[in-house]
Amino acid sequence: MTDIVIVGAGMAGLICAQQLTQAGYSVLVVEKSRGLGGRLATRRLYGTWADHGACYLKPQGELFGNLVQLLCDRQILEVWKNPHQPDSAPRYIAPQGMNAIAKFLSAGLQIQLNQRVTAIHPTPENSWCLTLESNAQFTAKALILAIPAPQALTLLAPLGEAILGREFIDNLSSVEFHPSISAIAGYPATSQPLPDWTDRKFTDHPVLGWIGLDSSKRPHPQQPVFVLQSSAKFAQQHLETPDLEPVAKDILQQAARSLALPWLETPDWMQVHRWRYAFPSSPWTNPVLSASSTIPLVCCGDWCGGYLAEDAMISGLAASEEINHSLRQLPVPNMNVLKLFSE
């Protein structure tokens, strides 16, 4: 038995876990993937690494700005300079990869990776029991699902309205996502002259959504590396395609034509990733979504109140407040992320 289990080790889950751990609760974070971060995703490959999820942070509010400044002070983030817009609002990147943010946020937490939750049910002792793919089980006095709403719905729907409440299930069901396909491509160091831009965004393009020169984020890059993100419409068309390599080649071909860079079609190497839940198209309107169950249960994530990493952080903080209110109401760090990492 632990006080709180959090499913999902992205920004929302890690921030929430830090708040509740600092308050004095026993907290276990369970993550189905091999690594931390969710969409703060970095893939290591061919002697380098590339961000194929969230590619930069652009803080808007003071709270997230404080976290970004802290990460800059710890030399985890730095400004990604845009030569064409030197006076624009700064964008922040992680030279060691965006998942370095998640690694920093995970310090001191109890986390189990490669653990997929397959079932959730209440116990006679008024707690939640989580069953894993390995048939292991955990019990907790409170549960937080910091995962995309459709994944949360798959786990929670079997509990039914009698336990969770009809309004909660309807609200969870209303959240929808756009998919995306990310292609990572590396090129010879002797390629044609590189463009003078760091990234380009495409509006209303049938295939392309964004392209970034990912290697421009890295210290002493050995070769040019680009990350390309598809449009939502194109990703939807190929969401169930078993072999994504031809799909990625199509993305590169479209970029080569649109940007007049024909050599983009012929990379040294290429990898592709499918994001089924990339961007909330119909997010929940509030920072958290709470069930009406007698045992505390809260959902949070970037789909609560927005779609950015900043929204995920705010949602994680709000979820910690909600759960704390439902349990022992211990003193928490007053939604001040700087206090979490002051030592």
Score class of each variant (00 low, 15 high):
Ala256Trp: 01
Leu63Asp: 11
Ala319Glu: 13
Gln75Met: 06
Ala12Val: 11
Glu176Tyr: 00
Phe177Asn: 06
Ile211Trp: 05
Pro150His: 07
Arg39His: 09
Ser230Gly: 13
Val68Arg: 10
Gln110Val: 10
Glu78Cys: 09
Ser315Asp: 11
Lys81Val: 10
Phe177Ala: 05
Val225Asn: 06
Ile111Ala: 09
Ile120Gly: 02
Ile163Phe: 06
Phe279Ser: 02
Gly97Val: 06
Asn324Leu: 07
His205Glu: 09
Tyr46Thr: 10
Ser292Thr: 15
Ala140Arg: 08
Trp128Ile: 13
Met335Lys: 14
Gln112Glu: 15
Ile295Lys: 04
Glu167Ser: 14
Ala189Asn: 11
Leu239Tyr: 06
Arg274Phe: 01
Ser320Lys: 04
Asn66Gly: 07
Asp196Arg: 12
Leu289Asn: 09
Tyr187His: 08
Met313Leu: 13
Lys103Met: 05
Gly165Asn: 12
Pro86Arg: 12
His121Gly: 08
Asp196Ser: 15
Cys299Arg: 01
Thr154Gly: 00
Gln222Glu: 14
Arg44Asp: 10
Tyr56Ile: 01
Pro242His: 01
Ala146Tyr: 01
Glu176Leu: 10
Gln69Leu: 06
Ile93Asp: 01
Asn66Met: 06
Phe138Ile: 02
Trp210Ile: 07
Leu340Arg: 09
Asn99Val: 00
Arg91Asp: 00
Ser293Phe: 04
Ala152Arg: 02
Gly10Arg: 05
Arg257Asp: 08
Ala9His: 05
Ile15Lys: 05
Ala152Leu: 03
Gly38Pro: 01
Gln115Cys: 14
Asn126Asp: 10
Leu208Ala: 13
Arg218Cys: 02
Val175Met: 01
His178Tyr: 14
Pro193Gly: 12
Thr139Arg: 11
Ile295Met: 01
Asp250Gln: 15
Ala41Gln: 06
Pro331Gly: 03
Asp204Pro: 00
Arg200Gly: 00
Met11Leu: 07
Thr241Leu: 04
Ala41Thr: 00
Lys32Trp: 01
Tyr307Val: 03
Ser293Trp: 03
Pro59Val: 04
Glu176Trp: 00
Tyr187Asp: 03
Leu63Ser: 14
Val332Pro: 00
Gln69Ser: 11
Trp128Val: 13
Glu176Pro: 00
Pro124Glu: 09
Leu264Thr: 08
Gln75Pro: 01
Glu245Tyr: 14
Gln22Tyr: 03
Thr154Phe: 02
His205Cys: 04
Ser106Trp: 06
Leu45Val: 14
Leu63Trp: 01
Met335Thr: 11
Ala235Ser: 14
Ser258Leu: 06
Gly316Glu: 12
Thr294Met: 03
Leu63Gly: 10
Met1Ile: 12
